[in-house]
């Protein structure tokens, strides 16, 4: 039994890191643009589907791994500039528009990719023994990519000029603009970066999940829970909450069904919302 728990905990941790990556994208977009991007899960889904398509045509996972985040960046930039910019003043309208985007993305994928779930072969294809089980090396690789991407994102935010601008706009938009920060460009880059993170999460997760057009509907609530528990717009808190939650759910599935584990997360979220609406990591705010 305890061996199973270790494996499940490990799985939870890997998945938590991927969710953290996606939720960071959601959180940064909210933090700067005040958009609750309900299409965020669908960007993740498009990432997995594009990964599948690129592997289907080229037979190489690594091409997808490089290209998909770039496509995500371009797609995000176009959507921010073309669709979100004109209605940026109203938070509610952006949510409705994001829902429209979600419909378009899901239906486009269903029309082209089909509605049958597909699987992607493990691109590394090696396993190593751990507590009597054979564990896929790829999962560790996925966790590594997520860690590097999250670390890189925070380095970008804190060590580069552009990252400092982003934090400045988030803190006080008017003042930042008065100081000559190009806020419009920052909005584009932020949305593009958030989308790119979701699609990177999609590529990385593609080999360990099934690929289908409804995938976003599962991932989005998970990200939402992480964002609420971590504190809306609190980036380190969001990442920590995502990892913690997935880890907790992973361990719990050793004893109860996945549904009950998810319900436990939801109960935790409700408690946080009622008792600490600013999130449990409010003091650690960056």
């Amino acid at each position: 039994m305890s061996e199973v728990i270790i494996i499940l905990a490990l799985n939870g941790l890997v998945w938590g890191l991927i969710i953290a990556l996606i939720a960071l994208g959601l959180s940064i977009i909210f933090g700067l643009l005040e958009i609750i991007n309900v299409a965020h899960g669908d960007f993740f889904m498009v990432g997995t589907v594009l990964a599948w398509a690129i592997i289907y045509f080229t037979g190489n996972f690594w091409i997808a791994f490089i290209i998909v985040p770039l496509i995500g960046f371009a797609l995000g930039a176009m959507i921010e500039r073309g669709v979100m910019r004109p209605i940026e003043h109203s938070a509610d309208l952006t949510i409705v528009v994001a829902f429209g985007l979600s419909l378009i993305l899901q239906e486009s994928v269903r029309a082209t990719f089909g509605s049958t779930p597909q699987r992607i072969l493990d691109p590394i294809g090696k396993t190593f023994p751990i507590v009597g089980f054979q564990y896929e090396v790829y999962r560790l690789f996925a966790a590594g990519v997520a860690i590097v991407a999250i670390a890189g994102f925070f380095l970008f935010l804190h060590k580069t000029k552009f990252g400092t601008w982003m934090r400045a706009v988030r803190q006080d938009r008017e003042m930042a603009i008065a100081m000559g920060v190009p806020a419009d460009r920052i909005y584009i880059v932020t949305f593009a970066l958030g989308t790119s993170l979701a699609m990177l999460g999609g590529v990385v997760a593609a080999p360990i999940t099934s690929v289908e057009f409804r995938l976003g509907l599962d991932v989005l609530p998970m990200c939402f829970i992480a964002v609420i528990i971590g504190g809306l717009g609190n980036l380190p808190g969001t990442a920590a909450a995502a990892i913690l939650l997935a880890f907790m759910e992973g361990v719990m599935t050793a004893y109860v069904e996945p549904t009950s584990a998810r319900i436990a997360s939801l109960v935790l979220m409700s408690a946080v919302l009622l008792l600490r609406p600013q999130g449990i990591f409010a003091k650690a705010r960056a």
């Binding site: 005040e34 309900v38 949510i95 609420i228 549904t259 939801l266 919302l273 009622l274």
Partner: peptide, 26 residues
């Protein structure tokens, strides 16, 4: 009790919760 942005998220999450409970077979 949730402020504007939280409200949307809470309603999404409760929908998911109810749906999950009903589809879980319990």
């Amino acid at each position: 009790r949730a402020r504007s942005h939280h409200f949307l998220i809470v309603t999404v999450i409760f929908s998911v919760l109810v749906y999950m409970i009903l589809s879980s077979g319990h």
